[in-house]
Every structure is written in structure tokens, then in C-alpha cells.
Write a protein that binds this DNA or RNA. Structure first.
Lengths: 189, 189
DNA sequence: TAGGTTTATTGAACTAGATCAATTTTTTTG
DNA sequence: CAAAAAAATTGATCTAGTTCAATAAACCTA
């Protein structure tokens, strides 16, 4: 298995060599081509997905205007999973799609449960992941209320420089809840 | 100990009578009067707080305008904790304050860790709590982008009728990222 | 129950950002 | 490398929601 996920985990918890080998048995690699869907609105998110390389977008289809609204991007070392749908095994309200060729590590829901039973230390890791994500969502809600479009755009560039590099401007606009034209005008300055 | 938290937990996991008594030893009750702060921006959130009754607001002070921006409300059976600050024992970026007389169940960070070690089943409960909160934050980000102020206001009334009843309109406006005057105009119709 | 404080309403003027439509630039692909 | 497709820019017009200031209700509290 690609070592990237274990490297990532080792930032938070220490696993024994035995635990590491056991851990690896639960995961499989998967490649997505640009445009491939990992999850569609209405489906249950059956796997937890860790990005080795590539970029994905999670988006919600606005039922009123038919436009897509970006919920988040996932790049190397991030997760591309509807955690709510995965944990409850209930239908997802959004879509996840590769916006460039992407490689993932995947684990199915049942394997995930078994893995946690066999390696209870991992509970801690996954709680930390959830908490980090939660913190970033809270921060985002605050920024959305406090800052105007320009400030949010520059904050995005600072906070996620790698994403800004990879992802087209009009998707960043959608993530920020701003029209692409307005982002263009901000940049003109 | 007030049975409300154990009742709440029993919706998600089953504890033995022994586990329940052990559980109770970790928690203490605390009363807050209207206006009391539970947490101030810059402090570490040292306790996890479950609301037995009352209402609190979590808010961020907008450094530009000096205004407060509501992040969330907590009422009976909810948690009033900066989970990020609590789990990392790092300074919080926001404030939590009682907006009416409130009673809490509290557990300190170290006790929380010990409790999880002694009753590992609880890991599951707290993960579910995190996931639920996460789902509601995601939903909120989507709604903010997709719906206009009027739709968001009516969605709030539907989703959180009990909060809408208890909390003044201008705080709901802030939660929704809208001016209080505009909420008033929406209601006029 | 009056007086103070907090909350809500209303009107008028203003603006951040949206929308629409056309054009240009960049990227992709056969 | 040419043509097509995708992404970005620009200008003109429009509007959802803000701001400010004044007034009116509602609600504490002594």
C-alpha cells in the first residue's frame, strides 16, 4: 500500500509495526480520471477515501438555479468522503468528482468498523480528523459573516495556496459564495 | 447527577448500570446566570459542557466593526463547548455566554480522557456527536450559498423552532448573517 | 406602575455584489 | 498545430441587503 496515509497517521498516533501491517490489509488503491464521480447526490457514501494525489471537488446542486455550489476541495493528504453519509450509511446530499486524475486509498464501511475494533488506537486519529475538519468549517462560517468577498478571496489564497494553484478560479468563486465575474474584478485591482 | 445526559447517551449506545454509575462520577453540575461567560475568546476551553436547561450563545467578535457574530446557540440537550479548543487544549477564537439562567453538566479535559479510557464505548457516542454537528455545519454552509435571507430565515424557524422562540430576533439575524432590520422587513410580509 | 433598558420597526439613501451578454484568453485535444 | 472547448475578463445594468437615524414596542426592575 502507498505509505502516504500511514505517514499522515504517524503525525497523530504511534502504531506498532504489527498494527501497521494489519492496517494496510484493510485499504485498497483506486484511480479516478478527470471527470469521474466518486459519489453522487442520493447515493450512500460506502467508502472512506484518502487522497494520495489529485484534486476533487465536493459540490451541491442548487435546486433553484441548477448551478453547482462548491462545498470543499480535496487534494493530496486530505479526505474526500461525505463523513455524515459514510458514518450513518445514509444518502448523501452532495457530489464528489475528480477534477484531475486522482489516486485514492479506500476502505469500505464494514472494514472500517472492523479496523477500529482491531486497532482501537485509531479511534483517536479519526476523532482528531473530524475535529480538525469541524474547526475549519466553523472558521469558514465566521469568515463568511465577517469578511467581504475580497477579504475572503485573499484569505483563501493564503490559507489554501496549493488548492488555489490547482483549481480554476470560477470554482473558487463558488466555494466562496461569490460570482466568478466578481472574483475577476477583485483580481484586476 | 441530573439524568438528562445519560438519557441522551442512551439514544446512541447502551451502557451497563455499572458503567452508568462510573460515568456519573466524572461530571459536575454548574449554574450560570444570564450574562455569565462560559468561555472567552483567547482562553482554553477546559471543560466539555452539556446543557440541562437554559440558552447560550457562541459568538465571534468581528475585529473590523466590533460587532458580535453568532456562531451557534445551545439549548437543552445540546453541547456548549468549543470542541476544537477543548480537544486541542488551545485558545478559543470565540466566546460562549449565557443569555438566560442556565444549568450545565461539566467534565474537565483530563477527566474526559480518563472517562474514555475507562468506558471505551463512549468513544462511539462522542464520534456520533461530532459527526452530527459536522453535518449541521455543512448544511449551514450550503444553505448560506443557495438560499436568500428570507429562505434562510424561514428554514431557521422550521429547523430550530425552540431556539427561535427563546432567542431575540437580532441574534437570529446575526446567526443568519443578515441585518436585524432586514429580518424585521421579512417578517412584515 | 413608572422609568429605564432592551428589542423591534420603519423610512430613505446607499452599495456590494449579481446578472447578462459579449469578447478575449487559455487550455485541451485530435 | 489548428480548432474547439473551457476559463477569464469586461462593461452595463440591476437588486438584495446594508446602513443610519428616528420611533415605537416590549420587558425588566425597583
Amino acid at each position: 500500500m502507498h505509505p502516504q496515509l500511514l505517514n499522515n497517521i504517524s503525525n497523530y498516533i504511534k502504531l506498532t509495526p504489527e498494527e501497521k501491517s494489519l492496517f494496510e490489509t484493510f485499504w485498497t488503491e483506486k484511480k479516478l480520471e478527470k471527470g469521474d464521480y466518486l459519489l453522487r447526490n442520493g447515493e450512500v457514501c460506502r467508502t472512506d477515501n484518502f487522497v494520495i494525489y489529485g484534486t476533487l471537488k465536493a459540490f451541491y446542486i442548487n435546486p433553484i438555479k441548477g448551478k453547482e455550489e462548491i462545498l470543499y476541495f480535496a487534494i493530496d493528504d486530505w479526505w474526500a468522503t461525505d463523513m455524515e453519509s459514510f458514518q450513518k450509511q445514509s444518502p448523501s446530499i452532495y457530489n464528489i468528482q475528480a477534477i484531475e486524475d486522482t489516486k485514492l486509498l479506500q476502505i469500505h464501511f464494514n472494514s472500517f468498523q472492523e479496523m477500529l475494533n482491531r486497532i482501537p488506537k485509531l479511534e483517536r486519529f479519526f476523532r482528531i480528523i473530524l475535529e480538525n475538519y469541524l474547526g475549519s468549517l466553523q472558521r469558514r462560517i465566521i469568515l463568511n459573516n465577517v469578511y467581504n468577498a475580497e477579504q475572503r478571496y485573499f484569505d483563501f489564497l493564503e490559507t489554501y495556496p496549493k488548492i488555489a494553484e490547482k483549481v480554476p478560479q470560477y470554482l473558487i468563486a463558488s466555494y466562496l459564495g461569490v460570482s466568478p465575474e466578481f472574483i475577476s474584478r477583485i483580481r484586476k485591482k
